[in-house]
Amino acid sequence: MRYNNYSSPDKFILLGFSDHPGLEMVLSGIVTVFYLITLVGNTAVILVSLLYPQFHTPMYFFLRNLSFLDLCFTTSIIPQMLVNLWGQDKTISYVGCAMQLYSYMWFGSAECLLLSVMSYDRFTAVCKPLHYLIIMNPQVCLQMVSAAWGISLANSVMLCTLTLKLPRCGNHILEHFLCELPTLVKIACIETTTIEMTVFALGIVIILIPLSLILMSYVFIAKAVLRIKSAVGQKKAVNTCGSHLTVVSNFYGTIIYMYMQPGDSASKDQDKFLTLFYTIATPSLNPIIYTLRNKDMKGAMKRLVWRDKGSLEIGGHLKF
């Protein structure tokens, strides 16, 4: 495929997997299926947690925010990705690329911080159960979520603005299927050590510090679980935290491998497949992970589908 017709500075060319047209067709089908699962699964989690009073608790307030984040994150990327995978036009406008970059970084960073907030919620529930509803009151929960959104927005504005200002000397071909920050940095025609160090430093703040807090929370949770004498109590505590820990492992494992390693250590195709997993698989798996381990959520979703809302017991202590 020739790209000489796309030398205009107001467009970027997303090569993606254009060298493998057969693979693009397969990937377009896979991406579509995962995107539909993401839309249905996360929308169902949001609706259930809003409609039924028994889910008006801090844990489900954070879960609702996580689902909303996943919807925003995937929708900022996948529609444009499908357009490029399905057709011959592999371009994206400069404005579209900038919007995708800002939103991609914003929602991705917010999810890092929100998962850390959720770990603190689980820590409080297991280690301080008698004071849980006092500590995790609606005002505190709202402040924590607002801080996650605000800090991640500041991170996105800083990094993306620096990246978009880099001179490219007419190079507008991206070896990717989305406008990702490392890919845009690579096509700059100047020394990029400064911005790479900035990305790494902010990566420590946005990725490694929240991950350290999560691990610290689970150390205290593990100690508290071991002190529980009842096997039933231990199982309940493990189930309470198991879903969150699974989501954290999937999300952080991919992100650390992608962003916290030397720039040239991964092959181009490897980086693309990791990004695919991060952008389509993880957001679709999150609602499945949370519902499969939660009998109340599974029951509520069944009743939502069958429009049997009146059969659920009305309960809950906090309104979110």
Rank of each mutant, 00 (worst) to 15 (best):
F61A: 01
F62Q: 02
F62R: 02
N65R: 05
S67P: 02
S67I: 06
D70G: 12
D70K: 03
T74D: 12
I78C: 12
M81T: 15
L82N: 12
L82I: 13
V83Q: 11
V83A: 14
N84V: 15
N84S: 14
W86D: 05
W86T: 03
G87F: 13
K90H: 14
T91N: 08
S93C: 04
V95P: 00
V95L: 08
V95T: 15
G96Q: 10
C97G: 07
A98I: 02
A98S: 13
Q100G: 14
Q100T: 13
Q100D: 08
Y104N: 08
G108I: 04
G108W: 04
G108M: 05
A110T: 15
E111G: 01
L113V: 08
L115N: 08
S116Y: 03
S116R: 06
S116D: 03
M118Q: 11
S119D: 10
S119H: 09
F123W: 14
T124Q: 13
A125Y: 11
A125M: 07
V126P: 10
K128E: 07
K128G: 00
H131A: 13
H131R: 12
H131N: 13
I134G: 02
I135D: 09
N137W: 00
N137Q: 03
P138F: 02
V140F: 08
V140G: 00
C141D: 06
Q143F: 03
M144N: 10
M144G: 01
M144W: 10
V145I: 14
V145L: 11
V145S: 09
A147L: 13
A148D: 02
W149C: 01
W149G: 00
G150R: 07
I151D: 01
I151G: 05
S152A: 15
L153Q: 05
S156C: 06
S156P: 02
